[in-house]
Measured scan of single mutants.
Amino acid sequence: AGSTTLRAVGKLQVRLATKTEPKKLEKYLQKLSALPMTADILAETGIRKTVKRLRKHQHVGDFARDLAARWKKLVLVD
Rank of each mutant, 00 (worst) to 15 (best):
V75A: 09
K31D: 13
K27D: 11
T20D: 13
V14M: 11
K72N: 03
D62H: 06
V77K: 10
P36K: 06
T18D: 14
E26F: 13
W71F: 13
F63E: 04
V51G: 02
R15G: 15
K52H: 10
K73I: 05
I41R: 02
T38E: 00
K49Y: 12
L35R: 00
A17S: 13
A34W: 05
G2R: 07
K56P: 06
E21N: 13
R53H: 11
R53M: 15
V75S: 10
L16T: 01
G2A: 10
L35I: 12
V60T: 02
Q13Y: 05
R70S: 10
M37K: 03
R65K: 09
I41P: 01
V60A: 00
K27N: 12
T50Q: 07
A69K: 08
D40Y: 15
A64D: 01
G2N: 13
K56L: 13
Q30K: 09
A1Y: 15
T45A: 01
H59D: 11
G46H: 09
K11M: 14
A8D: 15
D78S: 07
I41N: 00
L16Q: 04
K52P: 03
K31H: 08
L6I: 10
M37S: 03
R7W: 11
D78E: 10
V75F: 13
Q30E: 09
A39P: 12
A8R: 05
K56I: 11
T38H: 02
L32I: 01
P36I: 09
K49M: 13
L32G: 01
K24W: 06
D40N: 08
K31N: 10
L29K: 05
L76G: 12
L29G: 01
L35F: 05
L25A: 00
E26R: 06
K31C: 12
W71Y: 00
T50H: 04
L25C: 03
V77S: 13
T18V: 08
Q30M: 08
T45F: 02
A69N: 11
M37V: 10
M37R: 03
P22F: 10
L35T: 02
T18W: 13
K73D: 12
T5Y: 07
L25Y: 01
A34N: 12
R65D: 06
V60L: 06
K11A: 14
R48N: 07
K73A: 13
R48I: 15
V14N: 10
K56M: 14
A1L: 10
G2Q: 10
D78Y: 06
R55H: 08
K11L: 13
K73N: 11
T20V: 11
A1R: 05
G2C: 11
V51A: 02
G61Q: 00
V60G: 00
A39Q: 06
L35K: 00
I47H: 02
G10R: 14
P22E: 06
R7F: 08
A68C: 13
H57M: 13
Q58A: 12
T18L: 10
T5R: 04
D78C: 12
G2F: 10
A68Y: 12
H57N: 11
G46I: 00
A69H: 04
I47Q: 05
L32W: 02
L74H: 05
A69W: 04
L74R: 02
V14A: 12
L54D: 05
T4F: 07
M37L: 08
R48H: 14
R15F: 15
T20Q: 10
D66W: 10
L74S: 05
L32Y: 03
T45P: 03
T50E: 08
P36A: 08
A1V: 09
L35Q: 03
R55G: 14
I47A: 02
Q30S: 05
V60Q: 01
T18E: 15
A64N: 00
L32T: 07
E44D: 07
L74N: 07
L35A: 01
D78R: 08
K72S: 10
D40K: 13
F63L: 12
I41E: 03
H59A: 11
L12K: 01
K52Y: 14
A64L: 05
Q58K: 11
K49R: 09
K19N: 15
T38N: 10
M37H: 03
T4P: 11
V14E: 15
Q58Y: 12
R55Y: 14
K23A: 13
A34P: 01
I41T: 04
R70E: 07
F63G: 03
V14K: 08
F63Q: 10
K52V: 09
T45C: 01
K52W: 14
Q13N: 02
G61Y: 01
R70F: 05
H57A: 05
R53L: 13
L67T: 00
Y28D: 11
L76Y: 09
L16N: 01
L42F: 05
A69V: 09
T18P: 12
A17E: 15
D62C: 05
T5K: 05
L32C: 03
R7G: 06
L35G: 02
V9H: 00
K52A: 13
G61S: 07
F63C: 05
V77E: 13
Q13G: 08
L32M: 03
L12F: 08
E44A: 08
Q58F: 15
R15I: 14
L6F: 03
A8F: 13
F63N: 00
W71L: 08
T20H: 08
K19I: 15
A1G: 10
T20A: 10
S3F: 03
Q30I: 07
K52T: 08
V9P: 02
K73Q: 13
T50S: 06
M37Y: 08
G46D: 04
D40W: 15
T18K: 07
T18S: 11
T38C: 01
A1C: 09
K56E: 15
E26A: 08
T38M: 02
P36R: 05
D66P: 00
W71C: 01
T20L: 12
I41C: 06
Q30P: 03
D78P: 09
L16P: 00
L29E: 01
A64P: 00
T20W: 06
A69D: 12
L42K: 01
E21P: 07
K73G: 09
T50N: 04
L76A: 12
R70W: 00
T18C: 05
Y28L: 10
M37D: 08
A39W: 10
T5M: 11
D62G: 06
E26H: 06
R48G: 12
V60W: 00
A68S: 08
L32H: 05
K31E: 15
V75M: 10
A8N: 11
S33D: 11
A1K: 07
D62R: 05
A34Y: 00
E26N: 07
K24R: 08
K11C: 12
E44R: 05
P22L: 04
R53I: 05
L16S: 00
D78N: 05
